[in-house]
């Protein structure tokens, strides 16, 4: 196996970051408020990166990512809180449940061809809303007031490890033959199909992989914040992730990470500016699409040039 210097460098940097933050947190140098935001930042990285798989790499507009997060959060929280099951099976089940819901929603949409792609935006938006309505009406998980008393199983090492794993797995997927099939659909559906790409299969694959990771983020979220309610995962939450993916660059994983981090920090510093924040976000969406449709990073990945591998033939 050849050694990828860039990857080694990135991973070393990541682990350095891990230990620094771990040190700061365990010695209470970081206040509880900032600690909370650091957790949120990593959960947002999982959300933005996985959303980018659909919006950036597949090129279809997905507006209900928070809905899948809700599925993961509720399924896992019900397992640990109501059934007293351990964390690991809850995380796995929650993520898989979100992935399966992704398959069920995606199948009728992607099966119906190009028209279906156009309707994905509306269908996912509606899906987010349906999930909310279902949880509001499900007394077993607390109805409208939400589910509380969820054990705090998510700790810093688990969160960090799973975030890094998510990013690596999505990167690996994109850089494989299956990932290239997904990219070709974004580029030209008709050409892709005549080159042997099964459109329905790969659209569905990208969509449900994204749903799976959103579910994972949901499980981590629920087991950090004690309480979840249907309104935690509303449409505006999905918009947050959309803005992160768009700002970072549709089709750039590092872009998603940078944008997710940046926007989480900005929101933490400027805590409550409600309507104005949404005005700013909406303007970001429009202005980026008009003046720099590729986002900050475009489809490029952040690399340090001195680490670039020399191509070996």
């Amino acid at each position: 196996m050849k050694i990828n210097k860039q990857l080694v460098f990135n991973l070393s940097l990541a682990f350095l970051l891990f230990f620094v933050i771990h040190f700061l947190m365990s010695n209470r140098i970081i206040s509880a408020y900032y600690q909370l935001n650091i957790y949120l930042l990593f959960i947002n990285i999982i959300m933005a990166t996985s959303l980018n798989l659909v919006n950036g790499f597949l090129g279809q507009l997905h507006l209900g990512h928070a809905g899948f997060m809700a599925v993961g959060a509720y399924v896992s929280a019900a397992m640990t809180t109501k059934m007293d099951l351990p964390f690991l099976p809850a995380v796995i089940t929650g993520s898989i449940a979100a992935g399966i819901v992704g398959l069920l929603i995606g199948y009728p949409i992607f099966r119906s061809g190009r028209l279906g792609g156009d309707y994905l935006a509306i269908a996912t938006l509606g899906f987010g809303e349906i999930v909310r309505i279902i949880f509001v009406n499900t007394q077993y998980v607390g109805g409208a007031s939400g589910l509380s008393g969820i054990p705090r199983y998510t700790n810093w090492p688990i969160l960090f490890f799973l975030t890094v794993a998510t990013v690596l797995l999505i990167r690996n997927f994109i850089n494989s033959s299956h990932g290239r099939a997904v990219l070709s659909i974004r580029e030209d559906e008709i050409a892709a199909e005549t080159m042997g790409i099964n459109l329905t299969k790969y659209k569905l694959m990208a969509f449900s992989i994204a749903a799976f990771f959103a579910g994972l983020a949901g499980t981590l979220y629920a087991h950090y914040f004690f309480i979840i309610s249907p309104n935690t995962f509303n449409f505006l939450k999905s918009v947050d992730y959309l803005v992160m993916a768009v700002l970072g660059g549709l089709g750039s994983i590092t872009g998603s990470i940078i944008a997710a981090s940046g926007l989480t920090i900005i929101s933490a510093l400027l805590q409550d500016f409600g309507a104005l924040r949404m005005v700013a976000y909406s303007m970001i969406l429009v202005i980026i699409m008009i003046f720099r449709p590729s986002g900050l990073m475009g489809t490029k990945e952040f690399k340090l040039s001195f680490l670039e591998e020399k191509e070996r033939r």
């Binding site: 033959s177 290239r180 099939a181 990219l183 070709s184 580029e187 030209d188 008709i190 050409a191 892709a192 080159m195 042997g196 790409i197 489809t299």
Partner: peptide, 17 residues
């Protein structure tokens, strides 16, 4: 109808899928 924003190599590799 090329995959315009992909590299020349990727265009050919996709055909191998």
């Amino acid at each position: 109808r090329l995959f315009k924003d992909l590299t020349v190599l990727d265009n050919v590799r996709i055909a191998y899928h």
